[in-house]
């Protein structure tokens, strides 16, 4: 029978470069994480399969899996994992590592991350109007406007409940900065320098 050896290099790469990457070794392939995930309908692989692919050396499949950026950090899987694998940490670790390697596993998440980061970096707060506006416009002006129209009902409701301020466009009017923006920027710069991944 012909056999094919697993490529061990990728798993070593994960153990060494990904946050909590060595936790993958703990997995006993029971499958509870994939079923616990509230986004299980959206996930292509789910954590268990990703761990299995890491062990099997499937670098491209893992690094391009949208799942690693789909994780919303609800922590259900981590709470239930019978082996105590830090599932969320590894998922985010993989996403960071992929970005660092110039791979964007899920464009939407990456864009949203950028809009989120920009808002904090510029004003010190997450502006509930600014962030979604910038995010939707990243798809291009035409697509952006269509996307925004799709969200109109939600926007109206948010306005009615004073959960969102009215803006004509991004930065119109500009969001208010927090006090001590200088200090926050310093902290963010330092955090960014320490973090293995880039924003997003």
């Amino acid at each position: 029978m012909a056999t094919k050896a697993y490529d061990k290099s990728f798993r070593e790469e994960v153990y060494q470069n990904v946050d909590s990457g060595e936790d993958v070794k703990l997995c006993m392939q029971c499958g509870v994480c994939g079923i616990t995930c509230p986004l299980r309908g959206e996930m292509t692989h789910g954590p268990r399969q990703l761990w299995s692919l890491i062990r099997a050396g499937k670098r491209d499949e893992v690094m391009n899996s949208p799942d690693i950026m789909l994780c919303t950090s609800c922590y259900s899987c981590k709470v239930r994992c019978p082996r105590g694998v830090k599932v969320i940490d590894v998922m985010h670790g993989l996403a960071h590592y992929a970005l660092e390697q110039g791979i964007v596993p899920r464009k939407e998440t990456s864009k949203f991350g950028k809009a989120f980061w920009d808002s904090i970096y510029k004003t010190g707060r997450v502006d509930e109007t600014e962030v979604p506006m910038r995010y939707t416009l990243m798809a291009g002006p035409i697509h952006g406007i269509f996307n925004m129209l799709e969200m109109m009902d939600i926007g109206r409701a948010l306005l009615a409940h004073k959960r969102m301020k009215f803006k004509i466009g991004p930065g119109l009017p500009p969001s208010k900065k927090i006090k001590g923006m200088k200090g926050l920027k310093k902290m963010l710069d330092k955090a960014k320098a320490m973090s293995p991944g880039k924003e997003g």
């Binding site: 029971c30 499958g31 509870v32 994939g34 079923i35 789910g46």
Partner: peptide, 11 residues
């Protein structure tokens, strides 16, 4: 019952 068949990979 919900599960992930870890032989076939199907949920």
């Amino acid at each position: 019952l919900e599960g992930e068949n870890t032989t076939t990979g199907e949920r």
